[in-house]
């Protein structure tokens, strides 16, 4: 009487324990190494960065961050202090990057869409051309912006040479120092960035059913009407995702400014990334730099949330 009960209970316990040891932990064990990497490289530094931002951490206190004076919101007040030249420059860098982003994202999108519409036509060599337009996207950032730096040189560059041959300028223009720096970086960034937009939009265009477009032309819709009422709804979801990604990435643009203009791009092309890197690693004010990073995260989060709430992107291309 007792024995079968015990064996039944034993079997149940055995089954449960087997389920726990053999089945349940496995999925967690499999993601554990990746999770550890993400924790170590992303999560812990981000959280720690918030702690550091409340301290006046510099080169003397870096070996013992608890010893660094706790300054509360001091770093934040300093970063946003418009009576301080650095505070003004930080604000200026944010204004610069908004300007930079607005121009490059808009033009990159318009060019990308135009070329995508072009490449969606049937013509000889279309597959080859579709591959070739990706060349700017493939070129490593440091290479692409180095070549553009060469192209924009005042005396040996081909931009000035081209403008002079057209008779538009008499004297070589200085592109990479002073007021025109932002323009030069924008041109290079648009060249590098539009194929990404083009690629996504082309995929969106291919999801437009041909029959629908044919129906529309039979009904007498002109080119614009077909685009506006048939094509546009199909590329709207990918457009929203694309713009959001571009906003997030461009807000922290660093490579193009660093490669074309060096560590100190000057007031006309200073952006938050270059400014934060200089504050932390040239001026060795880690606490101040960390607080600026936190300000940037907060601004980005606000922008992203507003964007997501109002436009509701994120639906995939297939939807």
């Amino acid at each position: 009487m007792e024995a079968p009960v015990r064996s039944l209970a034993g079997a149940a316990v055995q089954r449960v324990s087997r389920a726990l040891t053999r089945r349940r932990p496995l999925p967690y064990l499999l993601i554990a190494p990746a999770l550890l990497g993400t924790l170590l490289v992303h999560v812990i530094p981000i959280i720690w960065g918030v702690f550091i931002s409340f301290r006046d951490l510099d080169i003397y206190t870096i070996a013992n961050w608890r010893g660094a004076p706790f300054v509360g919101l001091g770093n934040y007040l300093e970063a946003l202090d418009l009576a301080d030249p650095d505070g003004v420059l930080f604000m200026r860098s944010i204004a610069n990057v908004v300007y930079y982003g607005a121009v490059t994202i808009t033009l990159g999108y318009v060019i990308g869409l135009g070329v995508a519409l072009l490449l969606n036509q049937r013509f000889h060599g279309r597959t080859l051309v579709r591959g070739l337009v990706l060349l700017p996207y493939i070129m490593p950032d440091s290479v692409a912006y180095s070549v553009w730096r060469f192209i924009f040189q005042a005396r040996v560059g081909i931009v000035n040479s081209f403008l002079m041959s057209l008779g538009l300028i008499k004297e070589p223009l200085v592109w990479l120092v002073g007021t025109k720096t932002m323009f030069a970086v924008m041109v290079a960034s648009i060249w590098k960035g539009w194929p990404f937009a083009c690629l996504l939009l082309l995929a969106g265009l291919q999801s437009v059913p041909r029959e629908l477009l044919e129906c529309a032309s039979i009904d007498g819709a002109n080119w614009w009407q077909r685009f506006r009422y048939v094509t546009w709804p199909h590329i709207l979801p990918v457009t929203k995702t694309l713009i959001l990604l571009n906003i997030l990435w461009n807000f922290n643009a660093y490579n193009q400014f660093k490669v074309m203009l060096g560590d100190d791009p000057g007031i006309y092309a200073e952006v938050p990334s270059t400014f934060v890197v200089r504050q932390a690693f040239d001026n060795l004010r880690y606490g101040l730099g960390a607080s600026m990073s936190v300000v940037l995260v907060l601004m980005m989060t606000v922008v992203a949330v507003i964007y997501l709430k109002t436009l509701k992107p994120g639906r995939s291309v297939e939807d």
Partner: peptide, 29 residues
């Protein structure tokens, strides 16, 4: 498994985070 959805979401969020945001603490780490 439990937590799968949040994990996938966290992957998407991490991917959005530009390096400049954790560069300083990472360096100190």
């Amino acid at each position: 498994f439990k937590g799968k959805g949040p994990y996938v979401l966290s992957l998407l969020v991490t991917q959005m985070f530009p390096g400049i945001l954790f560069l300083i603490p990472y360096f100190i780490l």
